[in-house]
Design a protein around this nucleic acid. Structure first.
Lengths: 195, 195
DNA sequence: CAATTATCTGAACATACGTTCGTTTAAAAC
DNA sequence: GTTTTAAACGAACGTATGTTCAGATAATTG
């Protein structure tokens, strides 16, 4: 037995990726074996190596793609005229983007320590660049008097932690719609920075 | 070779616990082997089973002890006269308790999915009981007009996420002292709930 | 000082791991 | 319709896993 009916690289490739995403998010990188991923795809373990050089690349590619998409979404945002508008825009974008990708977000936060040092450096730089975007908004608001923030660096971490925490409980179809959640969080963020 | 000079249960026991704590926090539960823990302790893998029935109990005991200590600290708090005082007390306690135990906190948040279902249920109940404490404060403040919070349940999650996020960057001896961090965060929490 | 007990070793268990590779087969190209 | 190639199989590689246990030895007890 070998190549099965209907087997195709452009079908299996994404399926490998999806299986890795789902299983890494569910059980953690270290707890998932290549054989489990293969079983989820419906293929033997050896066949996975047509699509990834190794297990580590499977993780790294997922995280890099996620961070790159996040930064792309950030760069495409409608730039707010005022720091207040920009902060609202950031808040809503962050909530929407993250709530749409619970598995990617989970992996991005939980599996950093399972990256090789080189890969970790790359992902860390992407993350910092995202944080810098928010920090710039906060500093602009402090400068023009819109915000009252004693330490923009800490406020940046606080806001991001608060927003990302939504992923621990928010589920589509739950008590609140995403729009309601956005509204509530924007209210808290706005007040927290004194605007 | 067998029992070595100076070997004692009351010495090795805590050392097993400490090694597990350190290694689980550093590499993750699934990525750490019993032989690694044994090497850290300076003992053969088999000897660990004098101190734990299995690897899972090592994780569960760490998490249960952590949550129990957190709840104990919470019950011993000086109860604030007003909701505002109570919220400040909560904020400072949370920050102090968590910053003193970075490894336990890391494990408590990252290794939930590596608990057996029964163990997960127990830990989850402890966590919820902690969250309920904060939610009660927020509701009291809403009722007496001290706070302006549209959804106490969400505000609870937001505040805890914001505060726990401190552990991702705070290091003793860094730019800011714990006291300064407490002050900054209390300011943001207070404003976020409209007090 | 002899008997007992607590503590640890070191080997063994069956099973699983990530990865490689020769082989086989279906689909694509000519 | 034949040749070429992409894709998957399935067995094998050496190593590691959690856990058990008989045997050995140091500390403790009487």
């Amino acid at each position: 037995m070998a190549r099965t009916t209907g087997s195709h690289s452009d079908i299996t490739g994404p399926r490998v990726r999806d299986a890795a995403l789902k299983l890494f998010a569910q059980h953690g990188y270290a707890a998932v074996s290549m054989r489990q991923i293969a079983r989820e795809v419906g293929v033997q373990a050896g066949a996975l190596y047509n699509y990834t050089p190794d297990k580590q690349s499977l993780l790294f590619d997922l995280m890099q793609a996620h961070m790159t998409e996040l930064l792309a979404a950030w760069n495409d945002r409608p730039d707010g005229a005022t720091p207040i508008d920009a902060l609202e825009s950031f808040t809503r974008l962050h909530l929407r983007f993250h709530s749409e990708r619970p598995e990617e977000v989970f992996i991005a936060y939980m599996e950093l320590r399972n990256l090789t040092p080189e890969n970790f450096t790359i992902i860390e730089a992407l993350r910092r660049s995202y944080e810098d975007g928010l920090e710039a908004i906060l500093r602009a608001g402090v400068d023009n008097g819109d915000f009252e923030v004693s330490d923009p660096k800490i406020a940046t971490m606080a806001v991001i932690a608060m927003l990302t925490g939504v992923n621990t409980w928010f589920r589509e179809g739950g008590r609140l719609s995403l729009e309601e959640v956005e509204q509530i969080y924007w209210g808290m963020v706005r007040k927290a920075v004194g605007a």
